[in-house]
């Protein structure tokens, strides 16, 4: 196995011999993965295969039973929170305004009032949210809420985004719009991300590589590289459809078997 090249100006995450169990239920089994900087890696798998757990282990929100996730290289200068999550349920504080929710994650860092304000205005402008500065979350649609959560994640200048089914709580039209937003954002900033989803269309639209996990206990079944550039993927739908079929073929049996399992977690 060739050694991965570690670029010191970027952060790289690698997972080595990682297994995890909740009590006696094994969720993940011997996962070995490397995430390259500037690349979106999508993890797909049937429900309950431990993909969200894997993401929580990568960002240090849970401790693995065996093995570990490693970060190599330096976080970029000025990164307040190198590993930053975007959650499926947005996780916005309902009692804070849009600006207040972004300010929340800056308040623990020693920033001056002007610095915080500049960051908030900047990320709101980058996500086209400037006019919603003072809105409360309950006034926003699901898509807008997730845009706020993306703005909040950008505010801490992350080195690596951990996205846990960020579009799954949205209707399909909003999902399309946000996928375009994410592609546009990546084209500008080439962020690194690990993106967990069960939606194959999202996987082939956003992933530079797609990691297919098997059903519980989750193992890496296949890693599929997609070489079509992200911003060309909407036009080259036919080619993507082929990849999607290939992925579905891999997942079908797993999903079928997972569906028939009794839930005991």
């Amino acid at each position: 196995m060739p050694f991965p090249i570690i670029r010191l100006d970027y952060m790289q995450i690698s997972i080595e011999k990682l297994s995890h169990a909740y009590g006696s239920v094994e969720v993940l089994n011997d996962i070995n993965l490397t995430f390259e900087p500037g690349e979106i890696a999508v993890i797909i798998g049937p429900s309950g295969c431990g993909k969200s757990t894997l993401l929580r282990l990568m960002g240090g929100l849970e401790e693995p039973s065996k093995g570990a996730a490693y970060i190599a290289g330096q976080a970029p200068e000025g990164s307040l929170n190198p590993l930053t999550y975007i959650f499926q349920d947005f996780a916005l504080l309902p009692w804070r305004t849009v600006a207040g929710n972004i300010s929340l994650v800056l308040e623990d860092h020693k920033l001056s009032k002007q610095q915080s304000k500049a960051i908030i205005d900047d990320v709101l402008a980058r996500t086209n949210l400037s006019e919603f500065h003072d809105a409360l979350p309950h006034q926003l649609s699901g898509g807008m809420k997730q845009r706020v959560a993306i703005a909040r994640a950008l505010a801490v200048s992350p080195a690596f985004l951990l996205m846990d089914e960020p579009l799954s709580a949205l209707d399909s039209q909003t999902r399309e719009l946000l996928m375009d937003d994410l592609v546009a954002l990546w084209s500008r900033e080439a962020f690194s991300a690990c993106y967990v989803t069960h939606n194959l269309a999202e996987a082939v639209r956003l992933g530079h590589k797609v990691i297919v996990l098997s059903r519980r206990p989750g193992k890496v079944r296949e890693v599929v590289e997609i070489s079509i550039p992200l911003n060309e993927r909407r036009e080259r739908a036919a080619e993507l459809e082929e990849v999607q079929q290939q992925l579905w073929h891999m997942m079908r049996e797993e999903a079928l078997a997972a569906d028939r399992e009794l839930a005991d977690v």
């Binding site: 960002g59 929100l61 307040l80 929170n81 590993l83 930053t84 999550y85 959650f87 349920d89 996780a91 504080l93 929340l104 994650v105 623990d108 801490v156």
Partner: peptide, 12 residues
Amino acid sequence: GLVRMGQSFGMS
């Protein structure tokens, strides 16, 4: 989820 969000952003 909100608590986990706080932790994920490194809040004290």
